[in-house]
Nucleic acid binder design. Structure first.
Lengths: 342, 342
DNA sequence: CTGAAAGCGCTTACAG
DNA sequence: CTGAAAGCGCTTACAG
């Protein structure tokens, strides 16, 4: 079955291919009569323009890329551990689809790889999910294509569009909630306070809440772990059970971590929220599934993806010309993992 | 920064663009000396061929598509509920990447949409995740591009490559496990035994195990629900608590359903596995996170994605010319949601 | 308002 | 072994 091309349409409508292109692109004033004939031909022949050809001649692919950190040579494991990405990608995809863009996903190992990918596929724009080296951002800048960064606080980051979340407020809400429930010995679990600006922000909120309540900051109550995995949550949970410090409330930087901690506590015969009240962060779909279900700071991740997608597309279509930073709101969702202190 | 093209390389190497193309494609015998000069030029100029152009002239895009059922006009909600898809897509992506293909994801609303997408983007192959109408498959056949179907049992399905799982054996393993633990009153929870062939197969396994053990089949112990969601699990769980039939073991067609059921049982003050032993299906990442963690029939979903990807790419590259059906193995993973009957 | 022609960056018979 | 030329399916100054 031979593919219908613009020539076929032109022939059928008895005009030139150029004219067909004009009406399809809404460019120039084509007479109504001609327009009608072309549209009819398109209809009859069931014609759909070849994006590859359009892409080549317009130098625009209608394709955006979402870059993920590459682990073990494939984004697979990232997806497996980080339920968060999943929903984010869906959000982006959904706005892209509505605006006639397709979206591709790729893991980025090194800056060269990223650049090549953009060149190879003529990507119109990029969304970066996760943290990358400054070197990469320099490359990006040189590439000079619309780019939006997610959850970055680094300085050189202002050169791009940004979507982030009110992390400080999130940390504050979680901590305040525990304080309101009567907890006084509240721990904070994060990946790394120095290398993760996001966690640092949340920590600021934690400190602020403590301070407001006249509670001191006990450095012994701060737990750091390498990255956000269930297993790391497990480890911290075990540590907490045998800890030589009083501790009844735990603020966490991620649901997955919180779930791991709860699981470990339960295994050691502890009750949540009976013995420990725990707050997560993100409100993943699964936070509802666990027992106890998780009290958490919700960020609307799909909405975040949509926002990033719209920002990017606006920039591609020159609707917004200046770099913007959008901060998404955050909300405390109270479920079963927290309760009044005994 | 102007893009480096094949002409630039040709000029630098003092050959024709055609020759550059030859060496890059390993076609025809180019003299070693020429080859060396070309390769050097490529290196020096940091040249990467434009896939868009290649795609247009070769009529091959090095792009494969994964089609998902479209819910609410976007695949977003599908992803949100079906943690399964997520891992599958990662598997496909990972083999595609290794074989120099990129992969795109799209929701498919109707057959036309699907066809247009293939034409628009010159997709080389398609993977279908989920169930679609026979009408769609007819369209597909007409499109005549390599296609692999996942988990289908319908007859017209033999016209394509297939990847499925040993569903019957899975149902058997789950049921046998409960029987071995002393359970005699074992329920079966599925979506729809008539409209879902996958569930029917698993049900066959369930029946077989009962029969082998000399246990009768009680139709009152079969629960059907519309689709696989946590909420539907919740509903069935509630129903089970107040059921007028003895029931201590539950075989389920999905982890998400099982988790919902457990949650509902726990809410009503029941113990799992104390009062009920429950077996899931899939072994999603999160099955480890719940309390109790889930005994389940594991299918290696990432591996399934990889298999589908390889099948598709083999077919695209004419390595395999005949339609194949691959059946993936299944394995019982015993965790905390099942125990000896009291 | 409409069309001929050149161009986007590659590939591939064909000729030599 | 190498290259000139036509072609893939579009778009877009430019001319009329």
């Amino acid at each position: 079955m031979k593919k219908t091309t613009i020539k076929d349409v032109a022939k059928y409508a008895e005009v030139s291919p150029a004219t067909v292109s004009y009406v399809l692109n809404g460019v120039k004033k084509v007479s109504d009569d001609t327009k009608r004939r072309v549209l009819e031909a398109v209809e009859v022949l069931n014609y759909y323009p070849d994006f590859t050809a359009i892409s080549l001649s317009k130098k625009k692919s209608n394709l955006i890329g979402i870059m993920l950190p590459l682990v073990e040579d494939s984004p697979a494991s990232v997806f497996k551990n980080n339920l968060y990405y999943n929903e984010f990608v869906s959000g982006v995809e959904s706005v892209a689809r509505n605006r006639k863009f397709d979206t591709m996903i790729a893991g980025v190992g090194n800056p060269e790889e990223c650049r090549n990918w953009v060149k190879k596929r003529n990507l119109d724009g990029l969304i970066f999910l996760g943290m990358f080296s400054q070197h990469l951002y320099n490359e990006l800048k040189a590439l000079n294509i619309p780019t939006v960064l997610i959850d970055t606080y680094e300085e050189y980051t202002n050169l791009f569009d940004n979507v982030k979340v009110n992390d400080e407020h999130g940390g504050y809400l979680a901590t305040k909630h525990l304080i309101d429930l009567g907890h006084k010995d509240i721990g904070f679990v994060a990946t790394s306070l120095i290398s993760s600006p996001v966690d640092t922000k949340r920590f600021e909120g934690y400190k602020k809440a403590l301070q407001e309540a006249g509670l001191g900051l006990d450095k012994k109550l701060i737990f750091e772990t390498k990255d956000i995995t269930f297993d790391n949550g497990l480890k911290i949970g075990k540590k907490i059970v045998n800890y030589n410090r009083k501790l009844t409330g735990i603020v966490t930087v991620s649901d997955v971590l919180a779930i791991g901690i709860i699981k470990a506590l339960q295994k050691q015969g502890k009750q949540v929220p009976g013995d420990y009240s725990i707050v997560g962060f993100d409100d993943l779909t699964i936070s509802n599934y666990t027992t106890p279900s998780l009290t958490t700071v919700r960020q609307d991740i799909i909405e975040k993806g949509k926002t990033a997608g719209n920002l990017l597309l606006n920039s591609i279509e020159s609707i917004d010309t200046e770099h913007q930073t959008v901060e998404m709101p955050v909300e405390l969702i109270i479920r079963e993992s927290t309760q009044q202190r005994n």
